[in-house]
């Protein structure tokens, strides 16, 4: 009970400042609302452009790949001349870059930049 009142008191504070100071503070409040969502893990979600950039830089850094050939819809084995083991290696590099653990069955399906970007941008834990 004491905890509940303590929490309620804590939460009410910004609401009071909003009503007291009116429209002047309104802008600041909305900024707080979007950037300071505590206890929310989905707030730092990646944008698609960022995912594309980082996936491409990982693929370009791969030693056997010619960086000039890498585009967002390149196929690892058909276009870049890699073998299946290189494919797995790239997927592992992507896992490390985005701090994910991709299950084996889905990792097998990722064989092009396009699919990798698609998978990572829809993954909730990518960071």
């Amino acid at each position: 009970m004491a905890l509940r009142t303590a929490i309620l008191r804590h939460i009410r504070v910004p609401v009071q400042t909003l009503t007291l100071t009116g429209p002047k503070q309104h802008e600041q409040w909305s900024v707080c609302g979007s950037s300071l969502r505590f206890m929310s893990s989905h707030d730092d979600h990646l944008t698609k452009e960022e995912v594309i950039d980082r996936v491409l830089s990982v693929v370009k850094c791969f030693p056997k790949v010619d960086p000039s050939q890498v585009t967002p819809d390149v196929h690892f084995q058909k276009d870049l001349g890699l073998d299946s083991l290189d494919n797995v290696e790239i997927v592992m590099a992507l896992e490390e870059e985005f701090k994910l653990e991709i299950p084996d069955k889905e990792a097998d399906k990722i064989d092009s930049c396009n699919l990798a970007i698609e998978y990572i941008s829809h993954h909730p834990m990518a960071s």
Partner: peptide, 13 residues
Amino acid sequence: RSRVFDFFRSACR
């Protein structure tokens, strides 16, 4: 073949 890839993944992890 798929076991080799599984092993490679666990080694990488």
